[in-house]
Design a protein around this nucleic acid. Structure first.
Length: 232
DNA sequence: AGCACA
């Protein structure tokens, strides 16, 4: 089958990655690219001879992984089409979240269910490649409500579609925000439709970076930006 | 091509 008979998994296995790109940049880019599908708990990438050119992206939901497998299949990423499958085994970070993690020392096949209630400590500060110095104006990312139906993720595009802007937003204001990200080309406001804008980038990797960084940015306290890829 | 948890 398409996914090579591997059953769905919260973690996707990505291969055919460009081995020249440095590990941290790779993780950041993967994070930006895939976080549109859901919350990413961790990204594993190693540069050892056996493991270079591959990465594991762990999502908090299987549905996010499924969307990512389908939508980003063969996506050209650093000049190479990504090959995406479900991971074959459960990631440590997932096992930890559900309390079934067994340290690697014991190489046992410890797949038994641990009947446990939630941990009392709810500090879900998961390790995420914290690439971007994002929207640091108080409010973190917006909870995706206005506009788009967040279940149907738009395909990557070098054009971003911005919603929920205050009516008084000017092109210059948006330029100042977006031009700090590499690949920025231009901002386009629609006179007939206040509150939305399009922002063009050189490619969809760079647009993803900016989207991730500025998602939820508040120009006014009541206007967290909602950023999506523009429809093709 | 290659399925780990630096």
């Amino acid at each position: 089958m398409l996914s090579g008979d591997i059953p769905p998994n919260q973690t996707i296995y990505v291969k055919n990655l460009n081995e020249k790109v440095k590990k941290d940049e790779l993780k950041r880019s993967l994070y930006c690219l895939f976080s549109q599908y859901g919350r990413i708990l961790d990204i594993i990438a190693l540069k050892t001879p056996k493991l270079r050119g591959q990465a594991w992206v762990c999502f908090s939901e299987v549905t996010a992984a499924s969307n990512a497998v389908r939508q980003m299949q063969n996506f050209p990423f650093y000049e190479k089409p990504m090959r995406i499958q479900y991971a074959k085994t459960k990631s440590d970070c997932i096992a930890k979240e559900e309390g079934s993690f067994v340290p690697r020392e014991k190489k046992k096949k410890q797949e038994e269910k641990v009947e446990k209630k939630r941990f009392p400590e709810e500090s879900k500060q998961s390790s995420v490649p914290n690439g971007t110095h994002g929207a640091s104006n108080g409010g973190p990312t917006a909870s995706f409500r206005p506009g788009s139906t967040s279940q149907e993720a738009a395909a990557p595009n070098d054009i971003l579609f911005i919603e929920n802007l205050p009516y008084e937003t000017t092109g210059r204001m948006l330029e100042m925000l977006f031009e700090q990200y590499p690949g920025f080309k231009e901002v386009r406001l629609i006179d007939a439709k206040p509150g939305i804008a399009f922002v063009d980038f050189e490619d969809d990797i760079q647009s993803s970076m900016a989207m991730q960084a500025l998602q939820g940015f508040k120009i006014t306290p009541q206007n967290p930006m909602v950023i999506n890829f523009a429809k093709k």
